[in-house]
Amino acid sequence: MTGRIQVMIVDDSASARAALKRLLAADDDIEVFATAGDPFEAAEAMRSQLPDVLILDLALPRMDGLTFLRRIMAQHPMPVVVCSGFTASGSANAMRALESGAAEVIAKPQLATKEDWAEAEVRLCDAVRAAASTGGRRRAQRPAPRAMSPGPKLTADVILPPRPPNPDVGPPGGHIIAIGASTGGTEALTKLLTKLPAALPPIVIVQHMPEHFTRTFAQRLDGLCELQVLEAQTGDRPAPGTVLIAPGNHHMLLRRSGPGYKVDIVKGAYVSRHRPSVDVLFRSVAQAAGKKAFGLIMTGMGDDGARGLLEMRQAGAETLVQDEATSVVFGMPKEALAMGGADRARPLGKLPLDIQTWASQLAPRGAISWG
């Protein structure tokens, strides 16, 4: 037993299998021990060895990937990274894959340039590591996350320059809630938002997701919540009772605009290994809203959002993280606590009340008036 994360790739394209294997070779702690062109080949290979992480395309011959995933979860539950293309229908299937037990969903990489390869290495290896950390089998032997991206890990400075904290920067009545999440976040956010009433300040969210998939996620939440949930677009104005989710593969920034706020959606470089980045959103909230904001980091791998949450706290915002017991991966919350971005970790089931308690203290005599 080597301790390396043992990976199986299931994709009907030989070139895709080869590319994914080459990308994973960038991480010495990951080993691809088998590949398969369809679920039947994969099932045969699993007779000899079960993977620590399965990388699964959803468009497969002989049996579709979603059906195969459900059979795996019924017979031999394991961490699965869905790596597929995301059209409208593909995004819907990816959402069903998460509901069926997949740990991560990433877009099949486009590898036209050297920069594409470098970014894809980071995203794929991080997804495998995050998925491996959710599995109970040989969990104690999992290698600790390490910096493996080519070149330095960029901070929010490349998108938005830092400023000294200013608690009083927000507009009158401009209270806002900012949330960041990654691995396990789709389920955690669903549990949180479905427990919140519509009578709340605006909510802005970064959930690490592929492009196009965030729209499907927002539409699903909109059908489940009292809150209105939308995938954000440049120029959207956060409004009471509304949730704006950053679109996949783009950063979201909060800006002061007249008596309220608007959001800007920008491309830019990966920040803290992600696009969208929680650090970018949180820094913009600290600069635009100051002490009128509430910041929350939920389940996720890595440290994205930890620095941004600290900046929010230094600007006077109320800050919290999800606790270890209810997090699928206690990476982002743990780093935020260690950095001083928050001093309290709360169970997922208590977070709706925490947010409502904060909101109830904003208006005199319980009046609800945000804008």
Rank of each mutant, 00 (worst) to 15 (best):
L56M: 12
A232H: 10
G268E: 09
E226W: 00
M332H: 04
T194L: 02
L50H: 12
P165C: 02
G3H: 10
M209L: 14
I203A: 02
Y270K: 08
G37R: 07
L309V: 11
H251F: 02
G184S: 05
Q322R: 03
N249Y: 05
A246Q: 05
A25D: 13
F40Y: 15
L353K: 13
H274R: 08
S100H: 03
D11P: 06
L310K: 13
A45F: 06
P165D: 06
R123I: 15
G258S: 03
G135D: 11
L337V: 15
D157H: 13
R163C: 07
A198Y: 04
L353W: 14
D126A: 13
V285Y: 01
A286E: 11
S272G: 08
A144S: 11
Q361S: 11
A359K: 11
D279Q: 04
F294G: 08
I55M: 15
A363E: 10
M95S: 07
D323M: 12
I245Q: 01
R142H: 08
D116G: 07
A289Y: 13
E41S: 11
T242V: 14
R283Q: 09
I177M: 06
I203E: 10
L337C: 10
E31R: 14
A74L: 09
P164D: 12
L69G: 04
V32L: 05
E226P: 01
A325V: 11
L60A: 11
I177Y: 04
T113H: 14
T35K: 09
M252K: 10
